[in-house]
Design a protein around this nucleic acid. Structure first.
Lengths: 105, 105
DNA sequence: GCATAAGTTTGACGATCGTCGTACAATGAG
DNA sequence: CTCATTGTACGACGATCGTCAAACTTATGC
């Protein structure tokens, strides 16, 4: 059961944008970026079922956004920050910098 | 028949990412960015039907990516570059800078 | 061994998406 | 006026998406 991970050269911009265009996945990516460590599926504040969580992380992984590593029954997730930056410079930073909501006066 | 255009503060990141995640729309945005002028729907190299073109530009417009202005029977499209940059700094640049395909040796 | 915990797989569901063709509206050229 | 051009509106279609529940697998703890 080898988890598919694309190589950085195979990253596809539309695919990455699509992966990031879902609010739940965007939230997962934000949490992964804040916690500079590996996080298991169950360590996220998303309110979806386990199977949906599995699905979202597969989309993120197959797009190249995250790396997944098995450890016991857990699956640890990491942002592929360096590779994303190399392939799409500035993209991840711009996405993460975007405030969740504009703050009015 | 007022064309809906969101204000910059109402731009929604997932919505914008989704608008840009379609290859055809991404291509349209690229062409719009290269030609620093207003372009009608018929001035694009996309190979889709007229109704599909209308649909794609509506998605882009409602996400805040483009501005549309009626002129005769034509509808002129412009990138809302400044507003996008203000709301999501660096995002559009990163998307446009991403080469369409990686060039192998 | 047995029970618990963490994810996966499968199959389902309604919703949305990208696409098209046809019919229609509005403008500009002869 | 008539006709060509440009785009919209309206369904329609198959495909994909996000979601879930139920059954299963795999490892850990007692």
């Amino acid at each position: 059961m080898g988890l598919y991970h694309p190589t950085a050269e195979d990253f596809d911009l539309p695919t990455v944008l699509h992966a990031l265009s879902d609010p739940q996945r965007l939230q997962m990516v934000r949490e992964l970026a804040e916690a500079e460590e590996e996080l298991p599926c169950s360590g996220f504040a998303v309110s979806v079922s386990k199977s949906t969580c599995t699905h979202h992380f597969r989309v993120l992984r197959e797009a190249g956004v995250v790396q997944q590593r098995q450890l016991g029954t857990s699956k640890l997730n990491t942002l592929r920050r360096a590779e994303l930056d190399a392939r799409f410079p500035g993209l991840l930073d711009a996405v993460l910098a975007a405030g969740p909501a504009p703050v009015p006066a």
